[in-house]
Amino acid sequence: MPVVAMTVNGKPASADVEARMLLVQFIREQLGLTGTHVGCDTSQCGACVVHVDGRAVKSCTMLATQAEGAEILTIEGLAPDGDLHPVQKAFREHHGLQCGFCTPGMIMTAVDMIRRKPDLDEETVREELEGNICRCTGYHNIVKAILAASQEMR
């Protein structure tokens, strides 16, 4: 089995993995970081979004071995212990989550979106969320939270 080594939330992580192991499986099963979720099997729902070298990636779309040497950031590492990232704060403040299952992927997507597009408007946020499905909120408060966080981070 191939050995894969990467940095996850600032800490080195390596393991012997089956070649077919997906990055999301490595994160959830190998490292026990269960904040990253799996909501579909066709790379549509975005519950598994993490950052790979600073970019939002659906971690079900790449093999663990493809992340060799990469810097991975998951929801658990987004803010130092005891603190919250402005996007996390905005999701709570604006009730941008209900069951919480899509939330980690939404937040990781939003952080990347705000980094790439500092001048977000509602239409852009909605277009950018095309790859993240939420069944609870109707997106209304997710959009509100992302716009508020984007203002806050300006």
């Binding site: 959830r28 970081l33 269960t34 904040g35 990253t36 658990e76 987004l78 709570r92 299952f101």
Partner: peptide, 21 residues
């Protein structure tokens, strides 16, 4: 009132069935 349950969900600390091993 802002939700009590949110902290665990926005930090990836929820415990869904598949998270239990």
């Amino acid at each position: 009132v802002r939700r009590k349950e949110d902290f665990r969900f926005i930090t990836g600390n929820g415990h869904y069935t598949d998270d239990i091993t």
